[in-house]
């Protein structure tokens, strides 16, 4: 298949995935926005007033980047896992498997859908945040690049989850038992400098900490970790996960008998 034809396969899948997200916007966009609004209201407005300042910012201002990033992570992951597993469950994934579609196109097409939904929800949550606090941008390039790269990482992770999943339980276990704890303990609501030394060291093993803090640096200019290290970790994750997706799809694990 020529490169142009390969790019058409990618374009088709991206169009399909984006149209899925927009077609079922009541399921894909609205619920996370409501959840995040409640976070702003409860943690930021009600409890945050009593907490005072963190790292020199109002608590609401401090957690806003974390909440935006949390919504991006959850939605990028959730979009790919549900779209790919749904296609597998209904068997229309076969539409792609019987066609001469390159593996990278299958991966990037789904990732594009995840990134699209992650950014859509992230953008709406940012607008919601404006109702509660002032948003500032310390470095637009870091802010945008980190949010996109993070959405790519979790879209690929969602794809791997969906590849292995055999039943609906399998697509809710990882988000509930792995993703949620790592996100809540990843510096969304606090600076790790508040933790005891042991817990600080433990937190440094959590990749989400780097993503949240790098994004917070892009917005507020403060971070618990070095931003360069965050980029390195994110890029390593992207390479490893892309390689894993390629091997799994090529071998047909979870998708071919």
């Amino acid at each position: 298949m020529r490169i142009r034809a390969q790019l058409i396969t990618l374009e088709t899948l991206i169009r399909k995935e984006i149209s899925r997200v927009t077609r079922i916007w009541v399921q894909t966009i609205v619920p996370p926005v409501i959840t995040m609004s409640l976070y702003f209201l409860v943690f930021g407005n009600v409890i945050g007033r009593r907490i005072g300042q963190m790292e020199g910012f109002d608590y609401m201002q401090y957690i806003a980047p974390g909440l935006i990033m949390m919504s991006v992570i959850q939605n990028a992951y959730g979009n790919v896992v549900s779209s790919f597993f749904g296609a597998k469950f209904q068997k229309h994934l076969e539409e792609m498997l019987v066609a001469p579609m390159p593996t990278w196109s299958i991966i990037l097409g789904h990732v594009a859908g995840g990134v699209f939904r992650g950014l859509m929800v992230g953008s709406v949550v940012t607008v919601i945040a404006l109702f509660f606090t002032g948003i500032q941008i310390h470095n637009i390039w870091i802010t945008v690049s980190i949010v996109i790269l993070t959405a790519v990482v979790f879209s690929m992770a969602g794809l791997i989850n969906a590849i292995f999943a055999r039943k609906f339980d399998d697509i809710s276990i990882i988000p509930a038992f792995v993703l949620a704890p790592l996100t809540y303990l990843g510096g969304v609501f606090y600076s790790i400098t508040l933790l005891p030394e042991f817990a600080q060291k433990l937190s440094l093993m959590n990749p989400i900490l780097y993503m949240v803090n790098a994004f917070r640096y892009g917005m507020l200019g403060v971070s618990d970790i070095a931003v360069g290290r965050a980029y390195a970790i994110i890029l390593i994750f992207i390479l490893v996960l892309f390689g894993a997706c390629t091997v799994l799809i090529n071998k047909g694990i979870g998708i071919r008998e």
């Binding site: 298949m1 020529r2 142009r4 034809a5 390969q6 058409i8 396969t9 374009e11 088709t12 899948l13 169009r15 399909k16 149209s19 077609r23 296609a87 209904q90 068997k91 229309h92 076969e94 539409e95 792609m96 066609a99 001469p100 579609m101």
Partner: peptide
């Protein structure tokens, strides 16, 4: 093995796209 939530036209056009059309 159809995406039963999608429209007929989309299903067929997307399949053509997966073949690079």
């Amino acid at each position: 093995n159809l995406n039963t939530f999608d429209r007929l036209m989309n299903i067929v056009v997307n399949q053509a796209g997966f073949y690079g059309m």
